[in-house]
Write a protein that binds this DNA or RNA. Sequence first.
DNA 1: GCCAACGTTGGC
DNA 2: GCCAACGTTGGC
Length: 152
Amino acid sequence: MQYWLIKSEPSEYSLADLAATGPELWDGVRNYQARNFLQQMLKGDRLFFYHSNTKPPGIVGLATVNQTNLVDPTQFNPESKYFDPKATPEKPRWYTVEVSYLETFPQTISLDQLKENFSPEEFAVVRRGNRLSVMPVASSIAEQLLAMVSRS
DNA sequence: GCCAACGTTGGC
DNA sequence: GCCAACGTTGGC
């Protein structure tokens, strides 16, 4: 079982939305590095759910991978803002997973806390200018994150 | 709302 | 295949 971090703007889609209406197809990822990570996910993997563009930004809870290696249907839909004219059903370009809600942490692990506890080398989310929306989390870091939650 | 960072696009 | 222009992300 592997840990990952996924980002979302809560004004777009929040962990509370996932709790209320999930499971949800994690569609709309249009970055190759993020897509490659999505393709590596296995059922049962844990996802730290990160809220960006909010105050404060940070990890708000956990989700899990429900179904893997799904073709993102929004790439074929001209009405969608995620439409990709270069993708065809015969040759899809974008893949994703279905995620389901696990838990909301009693307190957000803020980006400030993350910066205090982890270096940019060990945890990409605290890297300046980081824009990757899906990234792996080393198991040692995952353990520390979970300990930070239970302590507080 | 600003702007730094950085991925992508397209002209050459 | 280079690289300038452009668009987007996301912290502040």
